[in-house]
Design a protein around this nucleic acid. Sequence first.
DNA 1: TTCTCATTTTGATAAACATCGAAATAATTA
DNA 2: TAATTATTTCGATGTTTATCAAAATGAGAA
Lengths: 114, 114
Amino acid sequence: MEELTKIYSALSDKNRLRILILLLRKSLCVCELQSILKVSLSTVSKHLSILKEAGFIIDEKDKKWVNYKIDRLNPNPLIHQLLISTEIFLKDDPIILEDLKKIVVVNRIEICSN
Amino acid sequence: MEELTKIYSALSDKNRLRILILLLRKSLCVCELQSILKVSLSTVSKHLSILKEAGFIIDEKDKKWVNYKIDRLNPNPLIHQLLISTEIFLKDDPIILEDLKKIVVVNRIEICSN
DNA sequence: TTCTCATTTTGATAAACATCGAAATAATTA
DNA sequence: TAATTATTTCGATGTTTATCAAAATGAGAA
């Protein structure tokens, strides 16, 4: 039962839902997410670790950066079902729509070290 | 987005998951739920109000008691999908299996006023 | 090897939450 | 009407959580 409450708890925060919707479109590094969410880097990092711990995402080193992406290979079907339902539920949300516009032009070289 | 975090937050507590699984089998009053969960009446009442606020359950007066039941007519399809997924995920959970044994013999006349 | 820099961890703070017992409420029964 | 009683609300307490800034980490670049 703890595994299930951990999964639902991971989805119980606005910033984490925004992160998941963004990652469904595109793999992103911590500083790119920070530039969209406008919270501190340490907060983004903490949210990512909660989502990873729950099984929604994985991380991958890419040169200087850590790319976070949806864990498409997670064997728990609930994870994928929740991602789909969440995406559908939020498809017209104004904050989400703004976020999705931003990832089109986001550029980690410009953003990092500022 | 707040509506969605409210829904997922409602599912982020062990006692509330136990309540939902019980109500999927049988409508129950507050004191019946209390006798199974072994937490205080005010805590059960609070959990029920959170589940009701999120759209999972409704209440109905029946003589001296308030019966809580799954809101089968909630127009939000996510609610029903989450209930089904949650039930499947917890189908072999030992605490849930014990709970389900108990509702077979639970009797509100014997339980209340103790 | 040393420096740089993206990320994580730590420590602190304020807000939210789960829980309880006691008081308040409301509705049925006597 | 008065008493009973199932439930809710209130007030208090301890725990968890979201957040930030600063320090630590660790991997690539010089």
